[in-house]
């Protein structure tokens, strides 16, 4: 028999099921408007040992990212002659969800590690560091929907914090369909009860989409609207992202001047 665990079970589901996910006056269950993001708090440079690190809170999501590198590759045979090897591990803490998640990497985590790496790679000048590795570690401490997007947003900051040359920051946000309406930045509950989810990552200054996934059901027309909604969400989040990166250096500057 296969394992009996579903992604659904691994994530928070509120105990009481409201009849409608969106009230008459376009208010979502957590009080947001359709195109409103969850409250975001981002900090850069939060871990002592890492070459770069960052922390994000987006709604109830709490995610840490650390970057080590460029450094020698272990095991050596993985080294690439013409560019750095970018590696990424997306991992959820056992206590990050309602029901304890086994710490062993699930199939979902393996897939997400891959798509997150591929979302970040276009932004990094990997060709500057041949024969090295750049390792990104992402730990989801608490999950409430949209963790892959928040993970990309925070990991991109950790890369910048590590001083790795980049073409642009990468920022990610999901849009989806809930109760027949298109909304942005879905919570876990909205994702599970809703009709569709479209996570998207963007390099905002290059208009380059580096992650795109979708599940559920959308007409071509709805899809186009959802993508645009997600892009708008990314642009909004990008402001917070940029601010967080700047404020680290403002803090350093102030400390030096004192």
């Amino acid at each position: 028999m296969p394992k009996r665990k579903t992604e659904k079970k691994k994530l928070n589901i509120p105990q009481k099921n409201p009849e409608k996910l969106i009230a008459k006056d376009d208010v979502r269950i957590d009080g947001r408007k359709l195109d409103e993001l969850r409250p975001v708090k981002i900090e850069v440079g939060v871990l002592g040992n890492a070459d770069g690190s960052a922390y994000i809170e987006q709604g109830k999501n709490k995610i840490l990212a650390a970057v080590y590198g460029p450094k020698e590759v272990h095991p050596r045979h993985l080294a690439l002659p013409d560019r750095a090897l970018l590696r990424c591990r997306y991992h959820m803490a056992p206590f990050s969800v309602e029901e304890r998640k086994s710490p062993a990497p699930s199939r979902r985590e393996v897939e997400l590690s891959k798509v997150i790496r591929e979302a970040l790679e276009p932004s990094v000048f990997v060709e500057y560091y041949p024969r090295t590795s750049i390792d990104i570690f992402i730990e989801v401490l608490q999950a409430d929907g949209g963790t892959r997007c928040a993970a990309i947003t925070v990991a991109s900051l950790a890369l910048a914090d590590a001083g790795i040359p980049m073409r642009d920051l990468v920022v990610a946000c999901a849009a989806g369909k809930v109760d027949g309406r298109l909304v942005v930045d879905l919570t876990d509950f909205e994702d599970k009860e809703g009709e569709a989810d479209v996570p998207l990552a963007l390099m905002p200054n290059l208009n380059a989409i580096t992650l795109l996934q979708m599940d559920g059901g959308l007409t071509v027309d709805e899809f186009e609207k959802a993508v645009n909604l997600a892009i708008d969400g990314c642009r909004e989040l990008y402001k917070f992202q940029k601010e967080a990166l700047k404020s680290k250096y403002v803090a350093v500057k102030e400390a030096v001047e004192e």
Partner: peptide, 26 residues
Amino acid sequence: DKDGKICAMQKGGHGYFTLQQILEAV
């Protein structure tokens, strides 16, 4: 799906797409 609705999507690889390319692909 059979009604011409999109039911899943996945980007892979180390590059990127523009919005126009994605809509053309659809």
